[in-house]
């Protein structure tokens, strides 16, 4: 059991940093709800993994990325809003996922997270993937921000906006798939959104914003898993959410106090 806790805490650090860091862009893109909804799309992938006895997180990632790429493509072709497409796809995926799950225990673990089976290899591989995702996101971060400010401006500077958006969706899919292991599909959206909006409360520049977002992601993830290890609660996900919400509440108060003193 101690091993599981140590591996889970180790994993929560990397998941927290990467979800917080990548989430900071998701929130800026006004795609916070997209990030949340997207995570639910993983459910059928997890179900297929459980049913056919292969690593469910590979199934989750495959579903996430295929859905993200499909939404990305449909949105470019049809100009239907991102939110509408994700909304439709997410409910469909949730329905398929629930039907496909072989038993309720497995469904519960997929929805709320299950780290009781985390091995050292899992933790190391997942953490390494998170580090790569962070590094690649750092490379395209300012380009994505520029494209957000004005897509024309970015294209006129020779930035292939469609390509970096697709790469970003790919990286988000990876990080969300890994995050599901800790907090589950229903709650992983939280790790992408809340550290970023908390960071936004305290930031007047992008450097600080992205850094704080990553730091808050770690604090929420790590402290949630730590609390879980001392409790008899079956899932760490809800505790991660509580830890994150406390951080968010503190930033709201600090932001309010700063405005009062300015």
């Amino acid at each position: 059991m101690l091993d599981v806790v140590i591996f889970s805490l180790f994993l929560s650090i990397f998941v927290g940093v990467s979800a917080g860091y990548l989430g900071s862009l998701m929130v800026l893109e006004k795609m916070a709800l997209v990030g949340d909804a997207l995570s639910h799309v993983a459910l059928p992938g997890l179900a297929i993994g459980v049913a056919f006895k292969f690593n469910p997180f590979i199934g989750a990632f495959a579903f996430l990325f295929i859905s993200a790429a499909l939404i990305w493509h449909l949105q470019r072709v049809t100009k239907i809003s991102f939110e509408a497409l994700v909304g439709a796809m997410f409910t469909l995926a949730l329905a398929i996922g629930i039907i496909l799950f072989p038993n309720l225990d497995a469904l519960e673990a997929a929805l709320f997270g299950d780290i009781s089976q985390v091995t050292m290899i899992d933790a190391i591989v997942a953490s390494a993937v998170c580090v790569i995702a962070i590094f690649l996101t750092k490379v395209i971060y300012s380009k994505l921000v520029l494209a957000m400010i004005s897509e024309d401006l970015a294209i006129s500077k020779g930035i292939n906006v469609a390509r970096i958006n697709l790469l970003y969706l790919f990286l988000v899919s990876i990080v969300v798939a890994i995050g599901i292991q800790i907090v589950g599909t229903l709650l992983v959206g939280f790790l992408v959104i809340v550290p970023a909006i908390a960071a936004k409360n305290l930031s007047s520049n992008i450097r600080r914003y992205s850094l704080l977002s990553a730091v808050f992601g770690v604090i929420a993830g790590f402290s949630g898993v730590l609390l879980w290890s001392f409790s008899s609660f079956p899932f760490p996900g809800p505790l991660v959410v509580f830890a994150g919400i406390i951080i968010f509440a503190v930033t709201v108060v600090v932001n309010w106090r700063m405005k009062l003193t300015v």
Partner: peptide
């Protein structure tokens, strides 16, 4: 190029950045 519309109101970015 200086475009007419830029979406900056919600981006926590400094002038320096």
């Amino acid at each position: 190029y200086v475009p007419q519309n830029v979406a900056i109101s919600d981006v926590p970015m400094s002038v320096k950045e």
